[in-house]
Simulated assay, not measured.
Amino acid sequence: MVDNGGLWIGQALLSKLVGSTSRILGQQPRPPRDDWAKLLSERECQVARLVAGGASNKEIANQLEISERTVKAHLTSIFEKLSLRDRLQLSLKINGLMV
């Protein structure tokens, strides 16, 4: 949170950052760590993987044929279940860079 000393990054920049990180990590061999997936529903896993790939809420909604509001609800649930604060932490977790 910005008011707690955090840094605000616009949605477009965050999507580029997450997407770039995902592409760079995809080029490096890593053993898959899907511990997080056991805590989520199948749909939440789909949303989480798309976020980790840099997709926006609108892109996720279009791809999964759900509303953006439903994407946001899934993200809220994902963040809570995995004890994460934001999309960047989610991407790092899914890509095995965060325990």
Rank of each mutant, 00 (worst) to 15 (best):
M1A: 15
M1T: 15
V2H: 14
D3P: 06
D3I: 12
N4D: 12
G5C: 05
G5T: 03
G5S: 06
L7A: 14
W8F: 15
W8P: 03
W8H: 15
G10T: 11
L14W: 00
L14V: 14
S15I: 12
L17Y: 08
L17R: 09
V18F: 04
G19Q: 01
S20D: 04
S22Q: 02
R23H: 10
I24R: 09
Q28F: 06
P29W: 08
P29Q: 14
R30C: 03
P31Y: 09
R33C: 12
R33L: 13
D34C: 05
D35T: 08
K38S: 11
L39G: 09
L39R: 15
L40I: 08
R43P: 00
R43D: 06
C45K: 12
Q46K: 14
Q46F: 03
V47K: 00
A48K: 02
R49V: 07
V51P: 01
G53V: 07
G53I: 10
A55K: 07
A55V: 00
A55W: 02
S56M: 03
N57D: 10
N57W: 05
N57V: 03
I60N: 02
A61F: 10
A61M: 10
N62G: 12
N62R: 15
L64T: 07
E65W: 04
I66P: 05
I66K: 11
S67D: 06
R69H: 05
A73N: 13
H74K: 11
T76W: 09
S77L: 08
I78K: 10
L84M: 07
D86C: 15
R87S: 05
R87V: 03
L88Y: 02
L88P: 00
Q89W: 06
L90P: 01
S91G: 09
S91D: 00
I94P: 02
N95D: 05
G96H: 02
V99Q: 13
V99L: 13
